[in-house]
Design a binder for these strands. Structure first.
Length: 317
DNA sequence: CGTCAGGTAAAAA
DNA sequence: TTTTTACCTGAC
């Protein structure tokens, strides 16, 4: 199936958005299992020209009511295809400092996970961590505790639900005690063994909350401020992680996730290299970019990476 | 070997 | 209230 939209698929997939790791690349196609009307489907997305996507798919059996219209809708949601990039670029062009981001980010879109809870855990594990490490961890968590589906192209895993994750062992000590006689060295069936370090306790606590007190879908129906306030009360979620979850996990495009890099970039571009507090950067970004704040953040971050600005802004020691 | 990675929570000022 | 400090861990 061919879909006509302006997008750079590879850029979007691999830009390190915290909603999820990039999909598995198999022979030029980005592949992942999704649920459409409860039916597991393997989506296989590729791109040969800039203005359209090629979408193939696999189902487990004939017993389903999936049609291409449904798949189209799902793909549009995942890559935020109904967002008007041209209009956004007009907005960027009005600001000389933002205009140059376009040529480095042309076709970059939000990459939203189907499963908000995956984004929550993904964002928590991204804190004070490297992209390579947290994405690997999320993949490991999926393969350990997610549901597995054997498609023709291979086995794929959905992300485990909050209840399952809240019932995992936090570390090898808890696992060893749980099994009573297992030696510590043999304990790999715990959160810490997925490489998330001290964030294991955050993941466990957050999972507990989302399996009992809050349904991840509740966040979607809240307004932005209410959603933000709800999220930052959860262990492991501070302002930056909350904004990432809201933007990349739920599509609240008014969020402006502010980390050290965005702080350096904004300070450099708009405050004459003055050391501006992260909290002020957040407010500044939200007020200046409004409904485009999230996209502006994504573009500024990626622009800084690709243009060499990041190297320039990196502290000497 | 130290340092660092798209911060957060807890202690200290 | 604001500012330091410790923190898993694999890669460099």
């Amino acid at each position: 199936m061919k879909l006509d939209y302006k997008i750079n698929l590879q850029l979007t997939q691999e830009s390190g958005q915290t909603s999820q790791p990039s999909w598995k690349l198999i022979e030029n196609e980005y592949c992942n299992v999704c649920l459409i009307n409860e039916t597991p489907i393997l989506l296989k997305v590729s791109q040969n020209s800039f203005n359209h996507l090629e979408v193939n798919y696999e189902l487990l059996n004939e017993n389903h009511d999936i049609n291409e219209k449904l798949i189209h809708n799902e793909i549009a949601k995942i890559y935020d295809l109904n967002f008007d990039l041209i209009k956004f670029y007009k907005f960027l062009s009005k600001d000389k400092k933002l205009e140059s981001t376009i040529k480095f980010c042309n076709g970059l879109r939000l990459f939203l996970t189907q499963n908000p809870f995956e984004s929550i855990i993904s964002s928590i594990t991204s804190a004070n961590n490297s992209i390579v490490r947290w994405t690997k961890s999320i993949d490991t968590i999926s393969s350990k505790w997610g549901k597995s589906y054997n498609f023709h192209s291979g086995t794929f895993y959905t992300f485990p639900n909050p209840k399952i994750l809240s019932n995992t062992y936090e570390d090898e000590i808890a696992e060893s005690e749980g099994y009573n006689k297992k030696t510590i060295e043999n304990c790999i069936n715990n959160l810490k063994a997925c490489g998330i370090g001290y964030r294991a306790s955050y993941v466990k606590k957050a999972s507990k909350i989302f399996s009992s007190k809050i349904n991840p879908l509740d966040i979607k129906s809240m307004n932005f401020d209410e959603a933000f306030e709800t999220l930052i009360k959860i262990p492991g979620i501070g302002p930056k992680v909350a904004d990432c979850i809201l933007l990349y996990g739920y599509g609240f495009t008014e969020a402006f996730p502010s980390d050290v890099w965005i702080k350096r970039i904004i300070s450099y571009l708009y405050f004459d290299e003055e050391d501006v507090k992260v909290e002020k950067v957040r407010t500044f970004g939200m007020e200046k970019f409004k409904e485009y704040a999230g996209y502006a953040q994504l573009y500024l971050f990626h622009f800084a990476r690709k243009s060499g600005l990041m190297n320039k802004l990196k502290p000497k020691n």
